[in-house]
Each structure stands twice: as structure tokens, then as C-alpha cells.
Nucleic acid binder design. Structure first.
Lengths: 202, 202
DNA sequence: ACAAAGTATGTACCATTGTACGCAGATTCA
DNA sequence: TGAATCTGCGTACAATGGTACATACTTTGT
């Protein structure tokens, strides 16, 4: 007498997917056992069986989100040879064809906020950011990668706040270009710790 | 016989302050009538009396937050004469002496997320951003102001995610400087819609 | 002083939540 | 086949939530 086999092996993953759907559309605060069960089309007991408590369910959902996700710009970035390619990959990931949908941005934001009170989720987020920066570092310096990462989050936040007001690709592109070029034109000067000059000649 | 006067005129504002405290420390999802009442040291009925429903209370709290708040960099920005002054004001507002505390950043993020489902709060946020950009526009172009605004949110998000890992001021400064200088060195070229060049000479 | 109107609060309801738990199939090994 | 074990699920319960409302207290106009 050993172990039974799950009658519906998809059930667990379906619950996790449903959890992410609920979180994206209604927010983490609305992610209850019952709502998730309803979204997944499974009975309540089914969700409590697979996930002992709600925290575990939500964290697991965020973990699957991480596992199924690579930074949007990963592939384009890998194939970028010139700085201009890098900039275009970043623009595209911000407001172009490889950019996340609004629902995905909301999902990130929900995860971010949940992570403020959940160490496990915070760890997931730090891991995601680490991956993101690692990919950027293939083409950029550490300083530039960090700035680019921060800026992209900022743009996404703007999109979240103005769902109907699309970002101006020209503005976005110029900003990334300024950061990417910074590495070439400035880093050596910043090493000297210069802070004083107001209008650096070029 | 007309109207009675409130026995404790501070009560309403104290409730609102308590609401913000609860939101900052526990999150909006934890902001219940009872918890806010406890935080404010007033009975439950007192909170329901001043605010007919919870949504109203929370929105009012966010409104008071907006009213009592000017962008952190407003004053330093107004007194900035050179680009270097502007950059320093931005760095200071990001990770220096005029930067918001972690709790305030969390508060912004909570408001941001709540705004995703509350049109009234979304409007508050758009108003805040408008003010922010308007102040930046005293010294910067529209495009630069938008990029700077986005980048600052990005840095703050980083701080929220790494509470114990302070931002590197040098990196932050260089990023802002790159954006601020962009306006001078690039805008005319971008007007020609150039996207092609990979390593722009300088 | 008295009554009306506004201020302030305690209590009570009903809905929703996380979780515990018992029961029924299914599967497996002897 | 039969007992043991796992899978899967429905129900029940205590806690917490928003909100309604009856009641008491203050202030004020006459």
C-alpha cells in the first residue's frame, strides 16, 4: 500500500493560474480561496487540499509566474550587437511589441506590494531583478544596467497610471539612449568623483 | 435651533492620519474601520460617522496625503540655477536628505495600486504626477521631465525592494546627469527621427 | 428652560473569510 | 479481496469585515 495518483494532475496548476488571474484583475487583497476556486472552476476543498494555507498558495502562484517568465527583453537583448540594437530592444520592451500587457504590469505591482510584507515574495522579486540586470549586463555596465532597470519600471508605472495614454516612443528612446551612451562618455569622469561641472563640454 | 458644533474638531483629521499610518505599515487591504479606529484611539462609531463608507475614508486619506505633500524636490528645484543644481536636487530627492522615507514610498505604492481599481484615487495620482512634472519643467524639457519622473519612481521602487541596500549615489547621479544633458545634446537630432546610428559621435 | 438638530458612540446584524475535519472514491499491496 | 493510504471534496465554525441603527450627549435658537 503506497500512494494514490492524482486523478487530475492539471488541477494544481490550474489553481495557480486562476490565482494569478484573480490577482491581476482584482488584486491580491481579493485573492481568497473561494474566489480562486471559482475562477479555476474547482470546489473550495480542492484549493485547500493542494495549498495548506493561503499564503502558500499566493507565494506558489508568484513562483510559477517567475518560472514561466523571462525578462521581456531577454531574447532581443541577446541578439543585440550594437548600442542602437540595445536601445531598440529596451524601447520595445517598454512600450512596443515585446512590452508586457497592462494586466502583467499590474501583476508585477501586486507582487511588489505583497513582497513588502512577505519575505519569500520579496526574495522572488530580488531574484527577478537580478536576472534582469544580469541580462542587461551582457551589453551594459553595472551602473547603466541598474539605471535602465529602474527607468523601465518607471515607464511601466506610467503605463499603469495612464492606461489609455500610450507612451511616446521617441521620448522613451531618447531616455534610454542617454543612459546607454552615458556609460561610454561619462563613466571615466565619474570615477574621478567629479560633481561640480554644470555643463560638461562634449 | 441650527447646528451643533463638533466636540472634537481634530477627530476627523486624526482618523485620516491614522488611516495613512495603517496603510503605510499594514497595507490598504488591512485598512478596516476597526483597525483605523484603534490606531486613532477613537471608537468604531466615530469612524463610520465621519465617513459613510470605507472607500470614502480611504480616498479622503489619500487626498489629505496629496494636499499635505509637495514633491520632495520642489524647493531645491526652484532654487536650482544650473543643470548641476538640478541633478543634485534630484539625487537628494532620490536617496539623499530630501528623499522620502521608506514608509512614504510604501504609501505611494499602496496608493498607486489602490488607484488601479479606484478612479478617484487614480485621478489623485495623475494630479500628483502632473504637479511633479510641472515643477521639473521649470528646468527641463517635457521629454526630460517625463523621463526623470519615471526614473525617480524606478529608484524608489528599488529602495522599497532593498530596504537595507542603499542606492549608490554616484550611479544615481550619473543617470540623472545623462538624462538632463540629453536635452541639450540630442533633442535636435531626435527631431530628425534618427534611430539608426549605433555609436553617435560626440 | 425646552425642544430641535447635529454630534458621537455602542451594539447588532449579515456576509465573507481562513481553516479544520469528516467522509467518500481511488489506488495499491498483501 | 481487503485493509491501508492517498486523493478529493463538502460542510461547519470561529473570526473579522462593513454597515445599519437606536441611543445618548451637545449645542443652539427661542
Amino acid at each position: 500500500m503506497r500512494k494514490g495518483k492524482p486523478n487530475d494532475p492539471e488541477r494544481r496548476t490550474r489553481i495557480l493560474r486562476a490565482a494569478l488571474e484573480v490577482i491581476a484583475t482584482e488584486g491580491v487583497h481579493a485573492a481568497s480561496y473561494r474566489r480562486i476556486a471559482a475562477q479555476a472552476g474547482v470546489p473550495l476543498g480542492s484549493t485547500t487540499y493542494y495549498f495548506a494555507d493561503l499564503e502558500t498558495l499566493i507565494v506558489s502562484a508568484f513562483e510559477t509566474l517567475r518560472d514561466g517568465l523571462e525578462p521581456r527583453y531577454a531574447a532581443p537583448m541577446r541578439s543585440s550587437r550594437t548600442d542602437a540594437d540595445v536601445v531598440e530592444a529596451l524601447v520595445s520592451a517598454t512600450c512596443g511589441s515585446t512590452a508586457p500587457a497592462l494586466a502583467d504590469i499590474r501583476l508585477y505591482e501586486e507582487m511588489h506590494l505583497y513582497g513588502a510584507r512577505s519575505p519569500r515574495v520579496a526574495e522572488i522579486l530580488r531574484g527577478l531583478q537580478k536576472d534582469s540586470i544580469m541580462i542587461l549586463r551582457r551589453s551594459l555596465s553595472e551602473a547603466t544596467a541598474r539605471a535602465v532597470d529602474a527607468l523601465m519600471w518607471g515607464w511601466w508605472g506610467y503605463r499603469s497610471l495612464h492606461p489609455d495614454d500610450p507612451l511616446d516612443a521617441v521620448i522613451v528612446r531618447n531616455a534610454y539612449r542617454a543612459l546607454v551612451d552615458m556609460a561610454v562618455t561619462r563613466m571615466e569622469r565619474s570615477d574621478r568623483g567629479g560633481v561640480s561641472d554644470s555643463s560638461p563640454g562634449l
